[in-house]
Each structure stands twice: as structure tokens, then as C-alpha cells.
Amino acid sequence: MHPFILERPSDLSAVLALRAQAGRNDAPVEYIAGGTDMVQLLQEYVRRPDRLVSLAGVLDDDIEIGPQGLRLGAAATMAEVAAHQGVVEQFPLISQALLNSASPQVRNQATMGGNLLQRTRCPYFRDVGYEACNKRAPGSGCAAVDGENRWHAVLGTSDDCIAVHPSDLAVALVALDASVELRGTGGDRSVPLSDLHRLPRDTPHLETVLEPCEVITAITVPATTAGLRSHYLKVRDRASFEFAVVSAAVAIETDGARILQARVALGGVGTKPWRLPNVETALAGADLEPAVLRQAAALAAEGTRGRGHNDFKIELMQRAIVRAVEIAGARA
């Protein structure tokens, strides 16, 4: 690891003052919460902050369900949220996505805020032995576009970056219209999760709309999405402890065999958690019949661009949507 000063401030205002010096990603001053991603990136010299600011004990880890919906304190761990009875009963999509993520050890350490801000698993980003990575070194090129790109994105890509956003949680949350609460030196604001992550365009090193000094304090999920029939389907290269090749988060409201409303988002295929409004519109009012579902899911292919090794994802993600809707529809 690059040498750093470890700061352990006791309150959030002290945290923000420290970070106010910093830039955006890969800045001289960075935060560490659960550390499960940050320590990997430090060990691999992908991140080299001069100063590391601990968020331990500074952010709350409360999990609350009220009339407004669900609120997850940014410091709540993946394990705590996944096992929370209210989450399991009213927002099972979130619990499922979390239990399909990482390993039990990592879920005991990793936090809600950190999960959303974890960095891509693109091997060219994670290995500083490769010179070309526009995320790590702006302007250096993208080794994945013409490289081993089986794991890479087919939606939201640019010629400068095709890295996938790796979070399962974010896929479930974006399907449920979640927002993140932010606090910065300028005050508090709320941002829809669908707007938190940026498309890579020609600035893939800018990954979120967070201002340099802002910190995620909580995630909120509206009560209107509670109690929907849902399923998180994760297709991966091994049965457990693996990132998604393709994942589908589906939540539906049904009347008998007819879908009244649908929410669909995909993981493993987008440069950010990818919501599919066109598929949702096509599913609304549709019957739970394979041919009908298949037709609606085909709309997910709009705007996709494969790069060779990852072409198979375009078909696979449509099948994942169909399967996830069928499983959600079959739930009691």
C-alpha cells in the first residue's frame, strides 16, 4: 500500500472538513467504511490516497420501516440488512440481492454506502500492470474494448470505458425507486439512485454525482414499492461468492395471471445499475405467458452494443428477465 495517514474523526462534520480538501475519485483524501473494497484497492495500488478518513462510528446503521418506506443507515452492513425481518417481509428483493452478493464474511463487514460506491471488477482497472485504463489513468485508453471483455457491459458503454458496475444491491434498489441521502459541507440533499452513477462517456474516472466532500448517509426506498412480488435472478460462473454475468431484479403487481405493473432492472450488463422502462411499459397489462414475456424482454436489447466476448449477454439478459418475471409471478 501507498503510505497514508489514517484519520479517525468522531463526528461527521470533522469527516467533511477533512474530505473538503479532496477531489473526486482517486483523490488524495478518501473515505473508508467497511473497507472490503477499499483495502483490496489499496493492496493493489489502484488507489493511493495520502490520507484515509475512517467513517467508523460516524454514520448510523439504523434500519427503519415507517409510513414513508424503508430507510437504511449508510453504515448498516449487508448482513444486517439482508437478515432484517421487515426487509425480508416487505422488500425481499433487497434481501435476496444482498444474500446473492459476496461471502458471509464480507457481508458482515461491508456497508450500504460502500456497496453503492464499490469500484468495478474490470480486471484491467484492478491490475495496475495494465497501462491502459481511462478510469484509473484518464486518457490512457481502454484495454477492455479490444481485450478480454466477456465480463464487460453492453449497455451505457462508450469507446473510453465498458466496465460493469458490480453491485447487486444497487440493481434491486434502482428497480424500487430508491434514493440516497447525501451530506456535504453545503448541506443535505437527496438523489435518486438512478442518478447517482454517471455514464462513462469520455470521463469514465468520474463515476458518481457526489461532490468531493459529500458522503452517503442513508438509502431510502418508498413505501409504494413494499410488498410487491419480486425476484432477484443472478446468473454467474459459479453457484456462490461470484459477481453477476447477468442479473435481473424484477418486482411486479399482478391480478391473477395478468401483470398490472412491473419494475425491471439489470446487473452485470450496464456501466451503471440499469433500469428498463421500455420493458416495464410492455409488461404492464401483459399476461404471464412465456411468449408475451419474451416479446417484452426483447426490448431490453435496445441500445446494446457487444464487444465480441460479451455478445452472449444480450440474449442471456432477455432470458433472465423472462425467468425472473415467471418466478416472481409464481410466488404466493
Partner: peptide, 27 residues
């Protein structure tokens, strides 16, 4: 591995299993 992938470093922290290679000692 030193990167949280193999689990050989697993210890219990406040009764819960964690990967000690992904924890900074000071924290």
C-alpha cells in the same frame, strides 16, 4: 490471497466472522 477471496484469514469480530486481511488493524 490477502484480498478477501480465500477466507484463510477468517476471525470472529464481536462474534461475527470477518476477513482479517480486509480490516485495517487500527480500525
Amino acid at each position: 490471497c490477502g484480498l478477501g477471496q480465500c477466507g484463510a484469514c477468517t476471525v470472529l469480530m464481536d462474534g461475527m466472522r470477518v476477513k482479517s486481511c480486509l480490516s485495517l488493524a487500527a480500525l
